[in-house]
Amino acid sequence: MSVAQERAQRLAALPFERIGRPVSGGGGGFIAGMKEIAAHRELLGLLVRRELKQRYKDSALGFLWSLIRPLTMLLIYYVAIGQFLGAARGIPQFAIFVFAGLTLWGLYSEIITAGTTSIVSNAGLIKKVYLPREIFPLASVGSALFNFGVQMIVLVGATVVLGQFPLSWNLLYVPAATLIILIYGLALAILLSALNVYLRDVQYLVEVALLIFFWASPIVYSWSFVLEAAERSDLPWLGDVYIASPISTAILAFQKGIWAAGSQDVVMGTNEQTGEPIIAAAQPWPADLDLRLLLMGLIGILLLAIAQRVFSRLQGNFAQEI
């Protein structure tokens, strides 16, 4: 039998595939989408590598830059907020505290900024080849995770050097918090990347929104400051509103996991007149943190499914709209 006849026979046995995803909703579409991505996981790996390579192309220090930026930010916040504004007086091991927050925030903001522009910046591919398009925001998540990993090594290294390695069950909060950030980051990246195709303002809006959320999260100041401010201003519900943000909760959980000094009373020095030790009390943590994380994780997964459905609906016209 000739090659051609064999091929014809094989093809005759294959079922027909409908091209173009069904636009109507339903959970089946979500699962089908996930399956398609799984089939392309090798390509996803290559795209992540491409993204990392192109970022530091032709630079002498290469990926060290992904460390220099957060370390510089750490230095700035340590000096300006910690020492000049005095936040470090009430927060023991201030450097670990700030770097923990910056590391997790860095993951979130990188997923969202890179994810939002991921479809538009891959226009060349999207116009010419069919791929499951969710792969592009996913690749942004991959490269953000790589940078996060590098920073995590530095963070854990620092806790060991400073004798602060958090050897306790609290350490489990670290993966849980990271997971929450990944779910919300991915959901937003998928949604915003699709919207950005139709309205380029989205990418600028995202920059501004991230700036606001950075300062609305307990990264460079601690949760106790927020509680005190809420008490002073007679607005006790302010703390509840603040903690309703999944990002704030995730960052708090992350700090609880990695920043051991926050969970104990720490001697910060001695009072010069009386000779009594000045003690920073253990940080307050939100009540029911575990339950909150679980709930937020579930809501996040729901949001992710909705984001994927919206994406799926919009992606049919990507090739002509970009």
């Binding site: 027909f16 091209i19 010419k128 080849v129 069919y130 016209n317 090739a319």
Partner: peptide, 16 residues
């Protein structure tokens, strides 16, 4: 449309 790069508004396209 055959390549699945853009989606048709009406009609169906099947491929194997």
């Amino acid at each position: 449309v055959i390549g699945g790069i853009i989606q048709a508004n009406e009609g169906t396209l099947e491929r194997r």
